[in-house]
Design a protein around this nucleic acid. Structure first.
Lengths: 241, 241
DNA sequence: CGCGGAGTTGAGATTGTTCAAGGATTGTGG
DNA sequence: CCACAATCCTTGAACAATCTCAACTCCGCG
């Protein structure tokens, strides 16, 4: 399924570019600056730490990751990181180092994006449009954390799950990685549970109920929300499309 | 109980000052800049909106508030706002407008702090130490949101409640508003429930269990954690004192 | 004195967890 | 190509956590 993977050998940077462009127009020079990123790529296996302490900004070119905190005997996932997304801390970001880390949920490819934001926050940045998009990207990520708190604190499993899947659908659609409600989904039920604060068995039952209601189709490595507009209406998800 | 209220007619700004100083030293000029804030104060009744859309930075001089999202038939509180805390959005903060609002949980007094951060983000700020402290304050607030997600997603009611009370104890101690584990607590069980994602009845039962275990004392408008160090150990709260 | 809001308490219904076992899928080495 | 292990998914039953409903108490306030 070609539409589900990123672009192969050539154009690995199209996906990051589309993520940025979804947040604001880029001048053609700045488009080229993104496409021309020459930093060496890093491949990591499932489960590995995506960036070390103090690590700078990176794009996730391929695979899925998560922002997570590990506790004795339990993990809490704060957010899924999708292909094309940025990870890492902005320069001078005051969030505490111990709040979270990033982990690969599948094999992933990363590329350093430090040059794009090296002068972020200074008066005359080299890439003003990119800087604006990056800032906006972080704002979106922070907004989604508030949504996540609401899922965890104020919704039942069914609504919570639907809301999360709808969010992922939106984010994948925005960069062309979803068609007709269908998109790649390489995440197991265990991990979904660590995101939503549910046991994997309850995740299973909740997915079963969604399928039963005709709101969800699942195949190996993918998933579809055939009536996502209706579902969004039902569970109070504000669609951005 | 004099220690539980802020400083009366004179020195209303001591509390905001101490919040800032807890995050980094201020030059004596900048101390005076905080103490000398002349903006008019605003008094709001319980339940009112603390700042309108696009409102700038304010200090909460007195009373408690919360950062909250209202849903049909339910509310989710993201954070409690304590006396001396700052609220509002930093200039150029990219978080979406609809993510949350601020509401007064008791009668409150606010003061505009716009002048302290008007040039925040520019190369040569007028108050560098204050700017650093404000930035750091927001970083702490954001870090606490991650802690909150963990409470909601990965802990049982008892641990979750203890963790929250310990956080509030820490924050009040930091500015001298708690002694021997005891501090003002003008919040009802309903609101605690809206914070922790629990029904008020379950909040009641959870508090009862904490009292029973000798970890909690409650009086009208106050609360004490007589063995907070031990409790922090028990529930995995990282004490900052 | 009566009223309203908040705290208390109990019983029963729901939601979600745990434990345990069996089935499917996938990747790997022979 | 097959056997095997590892991992994930599926299912059921018992249990625990939490919610809802409903009544009752207590207290502050007019």
């Amino acid at each position: 399924m070609p539409a589900f993977s990123s672009e192969g050998r050539r154009g690995y940077l199209e996906l990051p570019l589309r993520r940025l462009q979804a947040l604001g127009p880029l001048s053609s020079e700045e488009e080229d600056a993104v496409r021309g990123l020459q930093s060496s790529r890093t491949k990591l296996a499932k489960g590995e730490d995506m960036i070390g302490p103090g690590g700078g900004l990176h794009f996730l070119l391929d695979g899925w990751g998560c922002q997570v905190r590990e506790l004795p005997g339990r993990r809490q996932i704060f957010a899924f990181v999708l292909p094309g997304d940025m990870i890492g801390r902005l320069p001078r970001d005051p969030v505490e180092e111990t709040s979270f880390s990033y982990k690969a949920l599948t094999p992933v490819t990363l590329i350093d994006a430090g040059v794009l934001c090296a002068d972020l926050g200074s008066g005359a940045p080299r890439f003003p449009d990119i800087q604006a998009a990056i800032t906006s990207f972080h704002g979106r990520a922070r907004s989604r954390l508030f949504d996540h708190v609401v899922r965890l604190g104020a919704r039942m499993a069914y609504q919570s799950m639907a809301h999360l899947l709808l969010e992922l659908h939106d984010r994948q659609t925005e960069v062309g990685l979803a068609q007709d409600g269908r998109f790649a989904f390489p995440i197991g039920q265990e991990r979904l549970g660590e995101m939503l604060g549910l046991s994997s068995m309850h995740v299973h039952r909740t997915l079963a109920k969604l399928k039963q209601d005709g709101h969800l189709l699942v195949g190996p490595g993918w998933l579809a929300l055939p009536r996502w507009r209706e579902l969004a209406q039902d569970v109070g998800y504000a669609v951005s499309l």
